[in-house]
Structures are given as structure tokens and as C-alpha cells.
Design a protein around this nucleic acid. Structure first.
Lengths: 203, 203, 203, 203
DNA sequence: GATGAATGAGCCTTCATTCAT
DNA sequence: TATGAATGAAGGCTCATTCAT
């Protein structure tokens, strides 16, 4: 229901989304009231509803924004780079991001979205798409590594990719729950997973 | 000085929790109203509030119930069993449970709780404890396997345990989102992770 | 959405409707707020919404009540009474009712409903049914009068009935607008209409 | 010191009123939002508020416009015409108008105004004036007919005029509610009313 | 005058919770 | 204890109106 013209929209929309993200990360989607977003943004109810049909649309927009931001963490490596190094770079980017306040905020909202995806089809699609993008990128890198004999060819590339993604998801939970989280240990696990699967001579 | 036998009391509580679990799994904690629980249980508002102080306490009770049920999946293997086989048994029990309607329900609530843990300390404690129990059990089995030279000694046992737990968590997400979920593929990944790390002669 | 059991309902429903009718007659459907009804009834928002799904359902219930009350004004005359006297009795009952505060209230709401009927199908049905009942009763009496040679047989009974109903409707407007309204003059018009149409010898 | 010619100003007002009338006839005064009028007119909020103080003033202007348009239906017959023919001409003009889309729109708004008149003095005055004009014209014609011995002298002219007006009002309701409406039947009723009251020899 | 984004009071409605029976 | 009608605070949302451009 944008009563506002497309030109002016973008900036104001971003402002509202920024405020909403702060509130949602702090209190969750359901405990955050529109009043909270109003106060955080310094805008008015009418203004917010001029840009978003309802609270649900606001949540979905946050979801979309989240996933497009996350996609930016996946730098596109050139095809002639070392695929394992590229994988490692992705992991590092992800883990580093998780150390920043903005990254934590992003992950908290991410976990909220995992739950929201259980009963909102639109969000489920965004969330699963958001998982599939890195999944495929990683799988692709693993295959390249296999072709370059850097990874054991018998390994099921997609399965390994899933494991790596699951590892990220598990890290997110640990991190947002404030559990002891050792970024270096994570890297070690990651390396063990990647480099531990290098080809070995038959016993 | 309860006139009613504690058994009856406990039974009523269980009845309420059962109804609440159905509702929460279906609609989430926040979209479920007490009225929903009333209808699902066939009881009355007053009755429910006679057993639980408020909705939050009900959610916390569901959380506690959830985690104690999950703990039951972790059968205690005897110390002289094959630790890798025990690990595998745990994985199978978990994956099998996830195929049943009750298991799915449990996992959906689990994901809800992951989000709830972000801002409810009581639930966070339950959730993290609920993760740590299997984590430690798995770590223990890995150590036994290492002592029995079934697993490469250089592997960091806790890190591997975390990876396995993360893999479970990742599977839960895949499953509850209705993504294609291949139980056998999961077992294969699991096996690769476990058996792929068996000691090998130096190259 | 009656959360309340059918037994208890009736009395409370009537109480709410009574309060709503006072408000609606005073301020109209659209300017009356639920808060007004709350204050007039001395009840609470929740209570009102336990008996009526929303404001619209409340309006429709008022409409139903209105029309069933109006129907009571149409006493059922025995088939062997003088039909013209019966007609007159209906007219008198109607005009007398319009002199009472409750009658005025009823007519004000009636006019509101005429407008509401323009875009609410449910109300349109009630309103048109509410008009057709007296219309048919009157037509029936006119036919009896014609059979008894009390009214010119050439007169189109339904057309005359419509005219009489229109006369009532016109009176309602005059009355609710606070225009000079002479009940006796109305009776005279009515009599002229009825008795002026008695058979006469051909000129 | 308007820079804009009064004609332009008037044209803009008319434009707004035209749009408002369409909206009001479609959705009623209360369900029509200023936004609706903005969209229907293609103008802006500021522009509308430059011509009308508030929504109420807009409604009142619509009311005024309505009644002046209705007055145009009452052609002024010359004093030496046949008064009954003139009466008939008025009835026909009215009934014909009610067959056109613009006429229906006018009548729908008319019914809205009947209700609005219950609590807006300014509108009540316009509405009652709007009824009194034809009432007096009709009464005048009846008196002329009586003087010309075309209508029974004992008939109370004003009462008959009221009946005729009521008949019109009743027709409006029938028409706007989409009830079966037979224009010819209406004319017959009308004729019966007029010509049925011609003088007759005493029995 | 015209524009249209922004305002914010206030409306409808929900729902966790209470309490007389 | 159990019931369920009633409560009322609070939330989401609308829309008449304003005002900087």
C-alpha cells in the first residue's frame, strides 16, 4: 500500500527498517510493538504504515534485507583461486561478521526467522533460499577442490557442504545464546573438516 | 494441604502440557492463545491458571518437558560397548524420532525455543543445558573411541562433538522447514564424519 | 464467536443491544464508538466482543431486533373483523408508537438502517423483509375489503398497499427530522386514502 | 486577492464535488475516505483542503449541490396550464431521473442525507428545505386543480401533497435497495391518487 | 495554489488474567 | 479444584488533517 511515490520511498524505508531491525533483534518480532519501532525511528505510525502494509510486511522486509546482506558475505572467488582457500575465506568472513555488533544483531534476527519460517510461507522461502545460496557455493567449491585433487573424490560434495552449513548454523546458536564461543576453535574444526578429507593413500 | 492426590494433580498438569504442546507446535508460542490451549485441552481458563502462574510459566514447563523427553533419546550405553556404534545408535535414534509426528512436533517446538532463548534467561538455561548433555555424551564417546584407537587421536574431541551436534541442529532446521530431507544421506554424512576420521598411517 | 454459553448469553446480549440502541439512535452507527457502548452498558470491551464478533455484527443484531420489534406492531386481526378497521388499527398503532421515546429511537435507527442497507447486503435483506411484511399484511386486508365491497374493486391492491407503506415511511422522515408532525392529520390522510376509495356509483 | 480567476476556482470545486459524489454514492459518507476522493479526482489532499475546510464541509457542499440539482427537476409550469398535467409532468420527470445512473447516484446520496440529517443541523435544514420546495409546489398545483374543479374540494390539499411526496420517498427507497421497481406501476398509483380524487356526485 | 509525505489522536479488537460461583 | 464470564490494558492500524516545498 505505498501511498508514497517510489522515488522518495527508498530512504525512508531504509530508515524504518533500520529501526525495526534494532527492535526486532532486541525484543523479537512478537514482543516488539509498532510503538517501539516508532520510538526507535523517531517517525510516526502513519508514516510507517505508509511504507509497510502491516507488521507482517515489515517482518518480511527485514527478512529480505537480512538475506541480501548475508549474501554479501559470500564473496565471489575467481575460478582459478584455490577452492579450499576460498572456502576458508567464506568461513572467516562469516565468523568475523559474527564478532561485530551488527553481525550479532543479524544472527539474532536470523534465529527469529528460523522460527518464523515454521508458519510463514513467505519467510520460509526467503530463509531456505538464504541457506541454499551458500550451500551451493560451498558445494561448488568442494567439487572444484575434488577436481584439483585437494579433497578426497569419494566424499559426497553436497553432504559435506551441508555439514559445513550446519556447522555455521550451530555456531550461530552458540553465539547468540552467549555460550562460550571460540572463533579459533571453530576455524580449527572447519580446517579439520576440510583438510582432514584430503586424499590419502590406501592403507 | 492438597485434597487431591498428587497423582491427579500431575496428570492434570500433563494434560494441559500435552494440549499446549500441540498448540505451540502448530502456531508458535506467540500466536497460540490461552483460549487455544483451553479448546485443545477441553479444560477451562481457571483450571489452567490453577496449574500454571501465567503463559510464560507454561512455556517454560513445555521447555522443561521437551528437554527431558529429548534426554530420553540418549540411551546410556554400557562402558564396554563399541563407542562408535553407540554414537551411531544415538544418531539413528535422533533421526528416527524426527520421522515421527511426535518427533516433528518436538523439533518445531525446539526451534521456537532456540528463538525464545534469546531473551528468556530461564529458557536459555534449559536450552543450553539441553544441548550440553548430548554434547558431553558425544564427546565422551569420542574420547573412548580415541582411547580404543578407533578415532584419530589428534582430533579435538569436543570440537568434533560440536560438529556432530551442529549437524543435528542443521538437520532439524531442514526437517521442520519441509526441505527435502534424506535420512539415509544424513547417516552417510555422519558415518563419513566418524569413520572418515579413523587413524591412518602417515603418508 | 460466542465464547459464552448459550444459556447465559441471552440476558447479557439484550443488555448490550439495549445500550447499543441508545447510542446508535443518538449518534448514528458510524459516530458511535465501542467505547460509547461500553460506557452506556457499564460493561467492558471484552464482554461485548464475547457476544458480538465485531461492530458490524452488533449493527446487524440491532437491525434484526428492530425489525422483530416492528413486526409486533402488526397485530394479527381475525379474519372476520372489518378489514378497514384492522388497517386503521395498524396505522394507529404505528403512529402512536412514533409518539413514544422508544418509538422515536426505533425510527431514528430505522432511517440509519435505510442508508446502511445501501451497502450491507445482510441489512438490506432485513430492511426489505421488514418492509415487505406490513406491505403484504396491508395488501391482504385491502383485498378482503374489496371482497367485502368496502373498497373499489378496480383499485390495484398492491399499489395501494405500497402507497400506504410509503406514507408511513414519509411520516417517519418528517417525525425524526423534527418537522411539524400532526398525528391527526396523518390519520385523516390515511382515512381519505382508505375510505375515499370506497365504491361509488358510476357517474 | 485570488490570483486565480473565480471561474477556475469554481471549476476546481466542481471537480472535487463530482469526485466526492461518486465516492459518497458508492460507499457512503462515513466509509468514504479523503484518500478515496483524492484518487477519484486525481487531485491532492492539499488541493482538496484548499477548497473545503474539512470533510464535513465537503458533505454539506454535496448536500447543497444535491438539492439544487433536484430543484431543477421541478419545472415551473405556467399558471394557465392544466395543473393535473403539471403534477403528472413532475412525477414523470422524477421517475425518469431515477432510471438514469446519475439519478440513482443522486438518490443514494439522498438516502444517506436523510440519515445524516438526524444529527447535522445544517444538513437537516437543507434536506427539509429540499422536501418542502416540491411539497409546496405540489400543494399549489392541487389547490389550482381544486379551484378548477379537477379535484374534489373537500380534499386537504397539503395532506394530499404530503402523500405524494411520501410516495416519491417510498419509491426512492425501493429503487436504491434494488427492489423490483416498476416505473409504470408507480405512474398508475400516482394517477389513481390524482384522478381518483376527482369530484363525484353525492351518492 | 498544488503537492504528497508525514502526523498522531483515536478507533477497533485481542487476549492474558481474575474471581464469584 | 474447576468453571467460564468478565475485565481492561495494550496493541495494530486508519485516516482526517497539516505544512514544507
Amino acid at each position: 500500500m505505498p501511498k508514497v511515490k517510489p522515488e522518495t520511498q527508498a530512504a525512508r524505508r531504509a530508515e524504518i527498517l533500520e529501526a525495526a531491525e534494532i527492535c526486532f533483534a532486541r525484543d523479537g518480532f512478537h514482543k516488539t510493538t509498532i510503538q517501539d519501532v516508532i520510538e526507535e525511528s523517531g517517525l510516526s505510525a502513519g508514516c510507517i504504515y505508509g511504507h509497510f502494509r502491516d507488521k507482517e510486511e515489515l517482518i518480511e522486509a527485514i527478512s529480505a534485507r537480512r538475506h541480501s546482506r548475508d549474501a554479501e558475505l559470500l564473496t565471489s572467488p575467481s575460478e582459478d583461486s584455490n577452492p579450499l582457500e576460498s572456502l576458508r575465506a567464506i568461513a572467516l568472513a562469516f565468523l568475523n561478521d559474527m564478532q561485530t555488533p551488527a553481525g550479532i544483531r543479524a544472527r539474532r534476527i536470523g534465529v527469529e526467522l528460523w522460527a518464523e519460517a515454521l508458519r510463514n510461507d513467505s519467510i520460509r522461502k526467503q530463509v531456505t533460499d538464504g541457506v541454499n545460496v551458500p550451500l551451493e557455493r560451498i558445494e561448488h567449491l568442494i567439487r572444484r577442490a575434488q577436481r584439483a585433487s585437494l579433497v578426497e573424490k569419494k566424499i559426497h560434495a553436497r553432504a559435506l557442504a551441508r555439514t559445513i552449513v550446519a556447522l555455521f548454523q550451530g555456531s550461530v546458536l552458540q553465539r547468540v545464546w552467549g555460550e562460550p564461543f571460540d572463533s579459533r576453535a571453530m576455524i580449527k574444526i572447519f580446517d579439520a573438516l576440510i583438510y582432514g578429507l584430503t586424499p590419502r593413500p590406501p592403507r
